[in-house]
Amino acid sequence: MVGESRVKETLKDRAPEEQSEQAGLIQQISVREAAPTEVDPWAGEKVFDLEHVSVSYGSSLAVNDVSMTIPKNEVTALIGPSGCGKSTLLRCLNRMNDLIPSARVDGEVLYHGQNLYGSKVDPVQVRKLIGMVFQKPNPFPKSIFDNVAFGPRILGLGDIDHRVEKALRGAALWDEVKDRLDDNAYGMSGGQQQRLCIARTMAVDPEVILMDEPCSALDPISTAKVEDLMNELKEQYSIVIVTHNMQQAARVSDKTAFLIVEMDAAEGNRWGQLVEYDETDRIFTNPQDSRTEDYVTGKVG
């Protein structure tokens, strides 16, 4: 509760500045929109189909009735105020919610048409295909090399040295660490640690990478590096990112989903609700829902 109100405050504080940035953004985008669109942005292949997905912990609802499709080889952002369940929603996409015994998922999460929560589905197999990068960098207490090599080793993938180098290059980290691969990963800076975690995920060749506020613990320079990386990564991977930073969503994503906190005043319950899901350009320039507009223009937060 405390954390939430603090976040709100800071958002309010930053509102004017953000608004002016928004204005710049809108200009940019409207220039782009002037050019005739040649391809339908929803025509491509998709990785996830969410159909009426609700998540609850015990008896309390966390996310209510979300339906959306997530395209392949694009960056999809989930934005919204804290407590709107965007992280919870993200964690159902690779069954990390299974780790919380009381968590329950209703509805269907289809991954290439297969229900992720089907009775025969193995969560371990799911996580091999759908990797995750966490809010706080969480390298293993091992050497840099062993951090990246861990995944390929347990999955029995061959040619570890080559894979590690490729993953570190992919995460734009190779040049910084190639001379100290045997050093403990805890000696790296926060930004390097987070890129190491991304490299670690790439080393097992997933199809999708889920990112849960990957830059919230990083300084602006490290954040910029990770954002650049995302733009490159989407050629190879489909990325779903949760962020509370709207500018980040605007910068890196192709599609954006906006969730809000719904409240039942009588019962005191709160849960997340999907308000609008569209191309990022449209969410930020021409949202269909007034609540989205209020949020992206900084009127409420």
């Binding site: 080889n73 991954y111 290439h112 048409g113 297969q114 992720l116 089907g118 025969k120 589905v121 193995d122 371990v124 197999q125 799911v126 091999k128 295909l129 999955l155 029995g156 993938l157 061959g158 790439m202 097992v204 060749d205 997933p206 199809e207 050629e235 190879q236 991977y237």
Partner: peptide, 26 residues
Amino acid sequence: MEARDTIGAFGRGGADRPPPSLEASS
């Protein structure tokens, strides 16, 4: 080895292969 190739193909983005199985390999 076969599993690795399938996963590899996804990593490279394009291929039209059927998605890999979500069931436990063993």
